[in-house]
Design a binder for these strands. Structure first.
Lengths: 238, 238
DNA sequence: GACCTAACGCGAGATGACTCGCGTTAGCGT
DNA sequence: ACGCTAACGCGAGTCATCTCGCGTTAGGTC
């Protein structure tokens, strides 16, 4: 978070520019901690950082821009677990994520980025790229596990890590409740069981190619398979 | 969506009031379809609906208010699948959700509600209550399955349904890509496998009480269990 | 150490979101 | 059919957000 790397084309990367940048981003982070995205205003950031409002507008254009750059700052160095087993890796990663989002400032940042992405296409790009990178990095645990024979062949690393992370974002953004360690362990366990069962293997289209260790896999297949083409219509399920 | 129920205390529920209400909410819905939440402005809604801006402000206060009422309108009548097996129910529900969010207007509504919740506590309440109700309704498939002996005892219905839904919201809000039927089938299969393995049983704290049909459940336990208390600290995992 | 200029501070001005008061319309009771 | 009043249309007014131009500061360069 403190790797204040100057923008590539900056003609004056040293001293003051970097200083104001850091002051502003720190202020954004603090503001997000108190009151979340709702309380994040340009005036507030200016007041807290001591940088003039016009300067902030010049460099970042909007609160969305601020939030994007703050998030992009986080992309350095994910500590990738390597416990020796996929199950251990998944649990360790899940607990790291839980610890991360226990911090209110990071919760606020998540809300802010998701909200920003809903308003500005550029913010959406930043968000997508950030999480794509995270998936790619964390996904390295999957081929390791496959090499150890822990998983059926062809498990998609992105899918496994996405399955691990999804419950956190559901909890925070949809259910709107805090994360806890029980959520982390359940998420890790669910991802592990599903991965082991071959749910995340390519397996062409529907999940009928699933191999799992249990019996009774084949019930219920007939009654829903005929609904294959129903995704296109606009039926209202709610 | 068309059950224009008048507000409880409304002293004049008929005719014009309901008409303008419907016109406005329809306009919001359409605006969300074109350009999403970014393009949702009071002026736009007023222009499209033919209702004056001041009137919309009077009744709904803000765009967040509009979005909340539109979402609350959706709460009527979730079609609950009942295919005879939990696996079939999960897949049917997942495909319904996929179909739902294939419609751009509902995607926009989701984005809008999540964004609104990040700004207004009341919107957050509406969002939470809405999804709580959805979980409660859809969760009925779980005790049915338990009664048929498809699941280990004590599986938490909310957890099962949340696990089913989470991948959709991850895909839409975080990965920022469209949902498809493959996602639906994978989500259903993952939720089913995990539920069957006992991941969503209460099982006191950590997930060590898991019973699954596979072997090798017990590797990896030692190396991460000691990290139990690490959620409280503010370590930065990203 | 002296020059050059990108970046910043500052205040005035423009833009758009939001509110208010009044006259009018139309649902609802009698 | 008549009157009552909640809800709406309308335009002016207010306020916060955002931009612009100029003078100043301080990095970078020779």
């Amino acid at each position: 978070m403190s790797t204040a790397q100057p923008p590539p084309g900056a003609s004056r990367p040293g001293g003051r520019t970097a200083r104001t940048r850091q002051a502003v981003l720190d202020a954004v982070f603090e503001e997000l901690g108190e009151g979340g995205y709702a309380a994040l205003t340009m005036e507030g950031v200016a007041r807290r950082s001591g940088v003039h409002v016009a300067t902030i507008y010049r460099r970042w254009r909007s609160v969305e821009g601020l939030v994007c750059e703050l998030m992009a700052d986080l992309s350095g160095g994910i500590p990738l677990p390597d416990t020796g087993t996929l199950r251990g890796d998944l649990r360790a990663l899940a607990r790291s994520i839980a610890a991360f989002y226990t911090e209110p400032r990071y919760c606020g940042l998540l809300e802010a980025v998701v909200s920003a992405a809903a308003r500005q296409p550029e913010a959406a790009d930043v968000l997508r790229q950030f999480f794509d990178q995270r998936l790619r990095l964390a996904g390295s645990m999957v081929p390791r596990a496959a090499a150890r024979g822990e998983l059926p062949e062809g498990a998609d690393p992105d899918e496994v890590v996405a399955a691990l992370g999804a419950p956190f974002y559901y909890r925070l953004l949809i259910a709107r409740r805090p994360v806890d360690i029980r959520l982390a362990d359940r998420a890790a366990e669910a991802a592990w069981v599903a991965a082991r069962a071959g749910v995340f293997a390519p397996a062409a289209g529907t999940a009928d190619g699933v191999r799992d260790g249990t019996d009774a896999v084949r019930d219920a297949a007939g009654s829903v398979r005929d609904a294959s083409g129903s995704v296109g219509d606009t039926a209202d399920p709610a």
